[in-house]
Amino acid sequence: MALIAALLPQLVQMLLVLAVAPLVIGTTRRMRARLLRRVGPPLLQPYRDLARLARKEAIVAHSASPLFRIYPYAVFAATWVAAALVPTFATGLIFSWSGDFIAIIALLGTARAALALAGLDAGTSFGGIGASRETMIAALAEPAMLMVVFIVALLAGTSQLSEVSAFMAGPTVGLRVSLGLGLVALIMVAIAENARIPVDNPATHLELTMVHEAMVLEYSGRHLLMIELAAATKLVAYLAILACVFLPAGIAAAGAGPAALLLGVSAFVAKLLGLAALLSVFEASIAKMRVFRVPEFLGAALMLGLLGTLLLFVSRLSQ
């Protein structure tokens, strides 16, 4: 019974991230359209899109390998597990010890590698463009992200995200320069990793500017459904990381009662929607940059992260 009680929040979290993911996408689209003075799609449109994809037949290219039909599930599973390890509405869930912040980033890396292979699978030139650019972006974004992990882990004394969140909610944090640097770096990485403007445009199908969309061109039907849902879940995972590290308010402590959990869930959804709204404001106010400007953008994120880490290493000495 105790096991079931402990398993339940973990299960709720896994379902919650999946359930709200399309809503977050719908919110960003709707907000952005309103900011651009368009009517925009309904908030629930992504759910309808996914349902429609489920009804369609899946098409597999003649030149595709047997692995072609496996990648979507691999991408989805790795993203989902990563999202399930991020504390969303409560810390100290039953499986929170099975992976730390670094493992979460690496799991998202596994999903990305599977997606890049999917882009190369059918042997088309656009798939290659997407895979090549995605790996370039990832190769720069991942070290920047790890620097953010270092900053947070050095401050909290652990890289376990659950503990980090509890630490950040506590009174001992205070304002720190390195945390500010980490926050900026994290936002830059999150934008790049989720293929948002200014790094990539989730709405584009203009051949030469695509990154993420180019990799999934060959997919359709239920396979595309998996990939789209994984992309939405990934956005939720990054927003949840932002929320649990930098906005830990409202998150339920380990072993909290149902009331606190319920409060945690509503706080989490509110935080997600708020961050999604901020994202769309940011996206509406900036233009997409050239692909070869992206390394400078991510290089800046890496330098910010490194600077924050160095500050922490040096400040420990003066204490």
Partner: peptide, 28 residues
Amino acid sequence: FLAASATCAALALRLLASGALRRAPAWD
């Protein structure tokens, strides 16, 4: 976890989604 999630997703799709599959030339 990974294996369970992938299996869950595949089972859910088998129940809820169309199972039709067609081979065709690459779209590109």
